[in-house]
Simulated scan of single mutants.
Amino acid sequence: MLNIADTLHRWCREARPFALATVVGVHGSAPLPVGTSVAVDEDGDAVGSVSGGCVEGQVYELCRQVLRDRGAPQRAWFGYSDDDAFAVGLTCGGELDVLVQRIDPTAQPHLVDALDEVIQGRAAAVAQVMDGPESLLGYTLSVLGSDHVAYGRVDAGPADRAVADQARALLRAGRTARVDIGGTGDRCPEHLSVLVHVAATRPRMLIFGAVDFAAALSQAGHFLGYRVTVCDAHPVFATAARFPHADEVVVDWPHRYLERTGVDERTAVCVLTHDAKFDIPLLRLALNLPVAYVGAMGSRRTHDERLQLLREVGVTEDHLARLRSPIGLDLGARTPEETAVSITAEIIAHTNRGTGRPLTQITGPIHRPPRLTSHR
């Protein structure tokens, strides 16, 4: 849904009904993730994609039918066909489960507010009921603002609270996901499957050490959508002119800055100083924080010496096991730009549970579900 937020926001503000087709399940090598949507309005205008082209025609016609009939939401399954892949399936070999529903913006006014938050670059979540009692299918509930206030309703009862709690949790994690709720106890007696669409603020990449490698890494991090901060204790090196792709450049001792700045489960910490007086207090703190990735630059000799110093200041073996050092994947990188690719490749592989090996050398699905938990 949020992949087409701009258009949906305009249609909602105009009170224009539309059909929304959303990927609610993915199996195998389907081209687009859960939460991706196509929308079609009553004039036949369409926006978005659910398959990168494979089944768009069938989904478009189903949207038109749902709009015309004004009926209940419909489910459609698209999979690979050995007999005629181009006619009825996904030529990439994946499988898609798609929910198609009619949206009347006047009946769900909170969607306008949620979409407004998204296009303004602020965090928001929209929970959409995928499975459960027929009367609840397609209902939405939004969670907005830094206080994560919920708007809209699912059933004006226990389900509302349960869905809002799940939406808040996923919004904090910055992750779109499908979750099962209820079915037992008094909290939510009805079993529901809910897709929570999340538009989160950009994840952070904290780069410590204002060196040439940091300039290349800040550019690569910016390209990948991170909010990049470069921090160094030397004001002569830590300047905005040297790091035009960074969102901010900070002059401070690295560990002092890390103590006072905000991090979360998506944050990548990249230590490029390879200077013990900066590295040890910084890594001691970073390895104890709930961040996604901690990597440190240096030779293998530097790495061994660094591990010994970290042990001497009380860092446990479990925390040391989180340290990616020497930083990056083995790409044979030499230049700062190549090294930046090596580092970001490792961050991507770690985040998405990839192996870092050539796809030609592995079997099984190409796409894996995102990492669900972080070390604390």
Rank of each mutant, 00 (worst) to 15 (best):
L331C: 06
T22L: 08
E190S: 03
H350N: 07
V228Q: 08
A333C: 05
V211W: 12
N352M: 12
T351L: 01
L137R: 01
V249E: 09
S193F: 05
L141K: 00
R16T: 14
T36P: 00
L137D: 00
T176Q: 05
D147R: 04
L137M: 04
V228N: 02
N3I: 09
R311G: 08
P358C: 11
I119S: 00
L289P: 08
F86L: 09
Q128K: 01
L20M: 12
M297R: 00
H274S: 02
P31G: 08
P254D: 14
D247K: 02
A21E: 10
V198E: 10
F208H: 06
L136K: 00
E305C: 05
H27M: 11
A268N: 11
E134F: 07
A220V: 14
G71V: 11
G354D: 15
D275Y: 09
G138F: 14
T273M: 13
F237V: 00
R227K: 09
I347R: 02
T7K: 06
C12N: 11
V230Q: 07
H303W: 12
A173M: 10
P133G: 02
D304N: 01
G354Q: 15
R70A: 13
V163F: 12
I343P: 07
R68V: 03
A39H: 08
A349Q: 07
L307T: 02
R284G: 15
L32A: 08
A124Q: 05
D83Q: 12
D104V: 03
P109M: 05
D232K: 02
P158M: 08
G25N: 13
I119E: 08
R204N: 01
D264G: 03
T229V: 14
L329F: 15
A292R: 14
S49D: 09
F237H: 05
R371L: 15
P203I: 05
P73G: 05
V126D: 04
T22C: 07
A19P: 04
E134P: 00
H110M: 09
G28I: 15
D97Y: 06
S299N: 03
A76D: 11
V24R: 04
T184N: 05
A333M: 07
V196E: 06
N3R: 01
V40G: 06
S218L: 05
I343R: 02
V250I: 14
D43N: 05
A296N: 05
T273A: 11
C92Y: 13
T184S: 10
P17W: 08
T339P: 13
C92S: 07
I181S: 03
P244M: 11
A107W: 11
D318F: 13
D165T: 12
A30Y: 14
V294W: 14
D160H: 03
R172L: 12
V249D: 04
T339R: 08
G25L: 10
C12A: 10
R204A: 07
C92N: 10
E317M: 10
H234Q: 13
I280M: 11
G332R: 13
Y226M: 01
L115N: 03
R168D: 12
R153C: 00
D97N: 01
